[in-house]
Nucleic acid binder design. Structure first.
Lengths: 236, 236
DNA sequence: TGAAAAAGGATAGTATACAAAAATAAATAT
DNA sequence: ATATTTATTTTTGTATACTATCCTTTTTCA
C-alpha cells in the first residue's frame, strides 16, 4: 500500500473547513466514488483537504453517526458495509417514514412544489441519459425533496440519512450500475400527488420502494483503489 | 460565573473513557438534572471526568448529532432547547415510528417479552411512588424496549433518539414534574399486545402519545445552577 | 453620569506532539 | 523453505499548546 508516493501534482488552492470536507466525503460516498470497505486514513484525508487530523476526526465521527462509515477502534475508518440485516431494517424504516411523507404531502402540496418536483425529475432524466455520476445522487434527492416538502424537519433528516445509506446498500448488494430509482416511477408519484390521488400516490411510492429493495441482490467486485486520486474530484 | 472557585473536594477515583462520559451526560440530560439551556463548558466537564477537552469535544459532537445539545459556533454547547415547531415535529415522527413498532409487535411478540414488559412497568411504578429521578428515564425506556422488541435496529435507534428528545421537550414546555407517561397507559398497551388485539394496541399507543404531546404546555423556571455539583452524581 | 472604547480574562477552534496499538518488514530458528 | 519471533514503520488515540473569538470590566471621553 504505497499510497505515499503517488501524490498528484494538482495544486491545492482552497482550504475547506470541516463542513465542506464533510460535504465532499459524503458526496463521494453517495456517488460511489468511495465504495463500501474503502479505507479512510486520517492523515491522507487531512493532507488532501489541508486540515489537521483533528478536523478529519470530527468529520469522520459525524459520518459514523449517520451510518455512512464504520469506525473500528485502533483500526480507523472505512466506508460502511451494512450487513444484509441492517439493509433490510434500513429499507423497512425508510418505507415507513416515506409512507408518512406521502400521506402528509397529498393534503398540502402546492402547484409550485409540483413544478419543482417535475423540474427535478427532468434533471434526473438528463443525468441518466448522460450516464453522469450525479445520476445516483439526484435519484436520492428526489426522495429527500419530497420529505422536505412534507414540512417535518425531523422526518426529513431521517429520510435523508436513510436514502444515503440505501446508496451504500445498492453499491454493496445491487447489480453493478443499476441506478437506484426508475425515473418514470418518480414521475408517476408526482402525477398522483398532482391529482391528489392519495391511494395511487401511496401505492406507487410503496411499489417503488419495494422495487428498490428488490434490487439488492448480487455482490460487487471490491478491489482496493487509490483514495487520494478519487478525492481529487471532491476537493473544491 | 465564578465556577472555578467552588470545586468540590470529592476525590475523582475513576477515569471514565469517552463512552462512559457520553452515557453520564446523556443520563443527566434525560433525567433533567441538566436542564435545557444549561451551559456545558468543555474544560469544566473535562476536569470533572478527568479527560482532556479533545474527548469532551467528540462526546459533545455526538450528543449534538442526536439532538440533545445545541452547539453555537464559538459559544460552546448548551443542553438543547427545541423550539415548539421542532417539538411538534419530534412528536409527530415519533408517533409515526411507534405506530409501526406496535404494528410489527402485535404479530411477533412472545410471552417472555410480555413478561419483560410487565416487569418493566412494575419498576416504573415503584420509581414513581418513590419519586425517584429514575422515574423519567424508565418511562422512556418502556418505549425503547418496545422498539427493540420489534426487531428493527434502525427504527429502535430513532425511537431512542426521539424519546430522549421528548424528555427535553417536557422539561421545557411541560408542567413541572409531570412525568411523561402515565404508567397505567403503559399497562394498557401491554395488555392489548398480550391479547393480540392490534386495533386496541394501536389506539392505546396513539392516544398515549397524543396525551404526552398534550402535556407540552407551560414554561419552566430556568435559573442557572452549578454544573459541576450536578455532574457529581453522574461521575461513576 | 453615561456611553463608547479599550484592555483583560475566559472559552472555543485548530494544530501539533507524544503515546499506544496495529500493520508490515526483517530476522532467526526449525 | 516455512513458520515464528523480533524489529521497524505506519496509523490511531489522547493531551497539550497555541490562536482566535467572545464576554466582562475598566478606562476614557463627551
Amino acid at each position: 500500500m504505497n499510497e505515499q508516493t503517488l501524490t498528484t501534482a494538482k495544486k491545492r488552492q482552497r482550504i475547506p473547513s470541516g463542513n465542506t470536507m464533510y460535504e465532499a466525503l459524503r458526496r463521494a460516498i453517495i456517488e460511489r466514488a468511495l465504495r463500501p470497505g474503502d479505507k479512510l486514513p486520517e492523515d491522507v484525508i487531512g493532507d488532501r483537504f489541508g486540515v489537521s487530523r483533528t478536523i478529519v476526526r470530527s468529520v469522520l465521527g459525524r459520518l459514523h453517526g449517520e451510518g455512512l462509515i464504520d469506525l473500528k477502534p485502533n483500526r480507523g475508518a472505512t466506508v460502511a458495509q451494512p450487513t444484509l440485516e441492517e439493509a433490510y431494517d434500513i429499507f423497512e424504516t425508510r418505507r415507513s417514514l416515506e409512507r408518512d411523507v406521502v400521506r402528509r404531502l397529498v393534503e398540502k402540496i402546492t402547484p409550485a412544489e409540483i413544478k419543482k418536483l417535475k423540474d427535478h425529475v427532468a434533471r434526473e432524466e438528463t443525468a441518466r441519459t448522460q450516464d453522469s455520476p450525479d445520476s445516483i445522487r439526484l435519484a436520492g434527492e428526489f426522495h429527500i425533496l419530497l420529505a422536505e416538502m412534507a414540512g417535518n424537519a425531523v422526518t426529513a433528516r431521517y429520510v435523508n440519512e436513510l436514502v444515503s445509506r440505501c446508496s451504500l446498500i445498492l453499491a454493496l448488494y445491487g447489480r453493478p450500475h443499476s441506478s437506484d430509482c426508475a425515473v418514470n416511477e418518480h414521475l408517476e408519484i408526482v402525477a398522483a400527488l398532482q391529482k391528489g390521488d392519495s391511494e395511487k400516490a401511496f401505492a406507487v411510492m410503496d411499489h417503488h420502494l419495494e422495487a428498490v429493495t428488490e434490487r439488492a441482490l448480487l455482490t460487487s467486485s471490491n478491489h482496493q483503489r487509490d483514495i487520494r486520486s478519487i478525492l481529487d474530484d471532491y476537493v473544491k
